[in-house]
């Protein structure tokens, strides 16, 4: 018995059939020991990648493939990265299993990467595309939080608009308690931008874009 229900597989197949354009490579970084969620993450991604011919799954080991890990800035597992057919990295990161509501974030991200664009409004894309310095967005979530995919997707869509500069991470709080502690996360979603600007709750895309722009100004001054 797989992790996805047969009816869900069918639904995803139909979604992918209608909406995927180009290939998407799912990179998974994992390790054998001391990683409770690595194995189930690999299983769910394996099932998912079988639902479209345009999807491939590439599993790397954090220790053995340390050069790759370094290239993509991966320091904890499980970690998921989405690349397009030309190996373009859109800055999307999932740290921790994308289960519960976050699975729908992953599905939407795959469709966006396949299309090379999201539904972020054009005027916001223009603002984000103009950013010329590195931006790091961390979004802390729990899988049972219905508001969290809103925050994750906003961050990921912003990364897609300027992948050279912006990295946006989903962080599953219960798997990385040391990070939840470090960033004083007691409520989700919580977004931290460039270690300086932070806010709780899911906000409309425009408000998140404004926070990103504010974070750059803070960093500059």
């Amino acid at each position: 018995m797989g992790m996805l229900k047969e009816e869900d597989k069918q639904y995803i197949r139909e979604q992918f059939e209608g909406k995927l354009v180009g290939q998407v490579k799912i990179l998974l970084f994992t390790q054998k020991l001391e990683c409770e969620y690595c194995q189930p993450t690999e299983e769910i991604l394996k099932e998912l990648s079988e639902l479209s011919e345009l999807l491939t799954l590439d599993v790397h080991n954090l220790q053995i493939d340390s050069e790759d890990a370094k290239q993509y800035n991966i320091d904890k597992v499980p970690a998921i990265i989405l690349l397009d057919e030309k190996d373009k990295d859109y800055g999307i990161r999932f740290f921790g299993i994308p289960s519960g509501y976050e699975f729908s974030s992953l599905l939407a991200d795959i469709i966006d990467v396949s299309n090379g664009a999201s539904d972020l409004a054009q005027e916001l894309v223009a603002k984000i595309a103009g950013i010329q310095e590195p931006v790091d967005i961390k979004v802390f979530v729990t899988p049972t939080c219905p508001y969290c995919p809103g925050a994750v997707r906003a961050a990921h869509k912003i990364a897609i608009a300027n992948p050279g500069m912006i990295k946006a991470q989903m962080i599953e709080s219960t798997e990385f308690p040391h990070l939840a502690n470090k960033y004083a996360v007691y409520g989700v979603p919580k977004t931290v931008i460039n270690e300086r600007v932070q806010f709780e709750g899911a906000m409309p895309d425009q408000a998140v874009v404004e926070q990103v722009l504010a974070a750059i100004q803070v960093t500059d001054s």
Binding site: M3, D8, Q15, K19, P40, I44, S99, L107, D119
Partner: peptide
């Protein structure tokens, strides 16, 4: 461990 996976429609309509 038990996991659930929400497959609600992706945003791109």
């Amino acid at each position: 461990m038990e996991f659930s996976f929400s497959v609600s429609a992706p945003t791109k309509v």
